[in-house]
Simulated assay, not measured.
Amino acid sequence: MTRKGLGVIGLATLFFILASCASKPEEALLKRYFNALQLRDVTTLSTMAVEPVELEVASWQIISVTPEKVEPATLPELNKKELELKKKVEDHVGPTMDAKDALDVAQSELEAARTAGAKAAAKKKVEEAKAKYDQEYNLHKELQKSYNEAKDASSREEELTLFSLGMTQLPNVRDLTGTVHSKEVELKITDRAGNQKNYRFYLRRYELRDEATHMNYRGRWVIVKIELIA
């Protein structure tokens, strides 16, 4: 066989190996994870899983892998929602405080009332002011709750994004657009006593772009969640 022919075969073999590795990222990631687990290498585990789980593993087997799902990155929208709700909370502080002040004034007038007619009128004013304050207060609580939930959601997504990118911080991370790739892998894990349990590993990877600088960010596959399957 000619040298050229051998070269073509070599390139084809290399391509096949690389394609096989690329098509099964979950297998390579899980091998590294369980190797680190056996070595009790906490540092390495913390680079592969957002929340590493201690498992007693004698052997493991992949039962199923879902097709790779590709969805638009959600962090920009989550951040937008958080900022909008933050403004609503801030804007509603004034009306809530005004309603509280009106209630305080009404209660003071009730305390100062001397005649039956004045007391009745003041009492009615207190009831109306309290109803208004309760309405504003409850609305403010709902706005605050929604804001806290939105803030937690965007913070969590930012954490996962940075983890996949292998960074601890990136100033404009919430502005990056792109795609989020995910898979779910079901495993059968056997411990040293021969007991078997099934676990589901949630994997994710981010491919993002900074439209302002035209810089691309390619994240790695990471484990974002591990759960025992009942």
Rank of each mutant, 00 (worst) to 15 (best):
E159V: 01
E127S: 10
A153H: 10
A120H: 00
E157G: 01
R209W: 01
L162V: 04
T2G: 09
A131D: 09
L139A: 04
G178E: 04
G94T: 14
L110F: 08
D152V: 06
R3W: 03
V173Y: 04
R200D: 04
Q61N: 09
Y137H: 12
D101E: 12
A99S: 14
Y199N: 06
P76W: 12
D210F: 01
L228M: 08
V70N: 14
K69V: 14
A73C: 12
K132M: 05
S46G: 10
E127M: 12
T213P: 00
E158N: 08
E211Y: 02
L162D: 08
L203R: 03
G117W: 00
S46E: 09
Y147T: 05
L143C: 05
L30Q: 04
R32S: 09
A106N: 06
G7P: 02
T66Y: 10
D41L: 04
R32N: 09
G178M: 05
D175F: 11
S155A: 07
E158D: 02
K132I: 07
V180P: 01
A19M: 12
K88F: 12
P95V: 04
S64P: 11
G166A: 11
R220T: 02
E207R: 10
N148E: 09
L143D: 08
V89H: 07
M167K: 15
L165P: 03
L6A: 11
R209H: 07
A118H: 08
V222G: 03
E149N: 10
A120R: 07
S108D: 04
E26D: 13
A131E: 10
A102Q: 14
F16V: 09
P171S: 05
H140E: 03
K24M: 13
R200K: 14
L83H: 14
A193D: 05
L14Q: 10
L85F: 02
V105D: 03
E211H: 03
T190E: 02
N198L: 03
Q144R: 14
E158S: 08
K151S: 08
E90T: 08
S146T: 13
A113E: 03
Y202G: 02
E54R: 14
T115Q: 01
Y137G: 01
N172F: 06
T44K: 04
K81Q: 15
A112S: 14
T213Q: 05
E77L: 15
D91A: 15
K151P: 00
V224C: 00
P72I: 10
K125F: 03
K124Q: 13
E159S: 06
V93W: 14
N198C: 01
T168G: 15
L176Y: 07
R3V: 09
A121I: 11
